[in-house]
Write a protein that binds this DNA or RNA. Structure first.
Lengths: 240, 240
DNA sequence: TCAGTTGGACAGCAACACTATCCAAAGGAA
DNA sequence: TTCCTTTGGATAGTGTTGCTGTCCAACTGA
């Protein structure tokens, strides 16, 4: 496969592939002559990965580099697996310290996390930023979020453990973490709409009456049983 | 408060404040003369909000505009509240259609969501992008993620419902959704490390032996009881 | 009076991810 | 062989984004 075919296959222009080659994001093809090289399926896969990370994962070129290194270089031991993975990932809270609140949260939850984990710094920074923006984030709220995200992490680890090789596990963790963040965020929004719909449908139909109707005790248990599409729900077609 | 004081208070340079004024992200102060205006605490708050959205929320200027509009303009009815909020939010899946898989997922979960919700399109796009990147995302996995995110959304709606006014609820939803996404993502990573630690500590200590040791039945129930810091856990100090 | 601040207009900049141009050396078809 | 296209390589340019710098006249405060 020559570079033009690789370009046609992936939909990425040749110029961009050359750029990736230059930047080291794409390994050079097998040189057939001074001006010809052969590319294989691994190049195809690599190009698709890079495109996905850059385009949909919002990952910068430098971070893609670091991710690719983690994917190709090592089979680290199972213990600092996620450490290696998370250090390869782009992390926001670079210069921040771990706040006491976050440390206490982790301790209260009984989580076992190395005290220097980048994720702890990122979490501290994100919590501070949210509060700066005027979000009223109480400790109990944060804790409920944390418990929900533990379920997410359980799925993540299940997937990683179920991989057929260390390399596959590394791929699952690194790429899965980056690329599934948007999935989770979108799921959150979808779930918000659903949750809000259920609360509003059970509450009184008055327009803006019960803003403090937070106490609807029917919510925790039979969320599936209630309102399982009795009609097709086309009530909301909002402009984009 | 003059513009220089506003700048000093917020740490944002005067030039940038002028830029925000020009862009309409910051409302003009009360004009005292042709070359002097008075800024109040609402300007302070606004500047902090804009900064947080741009700097930590990764929101572009145009999207900030749309968010601010949603915050200041309306008190929409409780029913299309989240519709208005989500339309104001930056959404990735602009041109995408809602995939059948996503539609089926939502239906299987019994969620009530308007079929044109931007979040559904964003979800479809994110799932596709993840698969393009080589992530093996099965339906059952996606469903587990969705169930976890429903818990997150329940917290979100609790917070919104607990707000003291429609405007406060709008703020909680819009700003909370944007600014807490990074918090959730960071929590996910922290939880991953903890989850992985627990699995590795219960598994056999062999180096890379049990990659297929997905069947450790001790996980769902007593996650808090096990390993509640018997010693201070300083085993992982990785380089940043 | 006079340095310093303000609002306003407008141009410039740094980072980023490409994208375009040019070139000489291969292939490949006629 | 001739001529056109493709390739790898180098280098420079583009468009977008979020500021940042410069300049200016009007005004304020000491």
């Amino acid at each position: 496969m020559r570079i033009s075919e690789l370009a046609a296959e992936t939909g990425v222009p040749v110029h961009t592939l050359k750029y990736y080659l230059r930047e080291g994001l794409l390994m050079p093809g097998e040189a057939r002559s001074q001006t010809r090289a052969e590319y294989g399926p691994e190049h195809l896969e690599r190009v698709r990965l890079v495109r996905a990370l850059v385009e949909h994962g919002g990952v910068g070129i430098a971070a893609v580099h670091s991710i690719l290194e983690a994917l190709t270089a090592p089979p680290p031991s199972r213990h600092d697996f996620l450490g290696v993975a998370h250090c390869a990932l782009p992390s926001s809270g670079g210069g921040t310290a771990v706040s006491q609140e976050v440390a206490e949260l982790v301790e209260d939850l009984g989580w076992r996390v190395g005290p220097a984990a980048p994720a702890l710094r990122a979490l501290s920074a994100a919590v501070t930023a949210a509060r700066d923006a005027g979000v009223r984030l109480e400790r109990s709220t944060l804790r409920r979020y944390a418990e929900a995200m533990r379920e997410v992490a359980a799925v993540d680890v299940d997937v990683a453990v179920g991989a057929h090789s260390p390399a596959a596990a590394m791929h699952a963790v690194v790429v899965g973490t980056v690329m599934l963040d948007p999935v989770l965020v979108a799921l959150r929004r979808v779930a918000q709409e659903s949750e809000s719909w259920e609360r509003n449908s059970t509450a009184s139909p008055g327009p803006d009456a019960a803003w403090r109707a937070r106490a609807d005790p029917v919510r925790r248990s039979p969320r599936h049983a209630v309102a399982r599409h009795p009609n097709p729900t086309v009530e909301e077609v909002r402009p984009g």
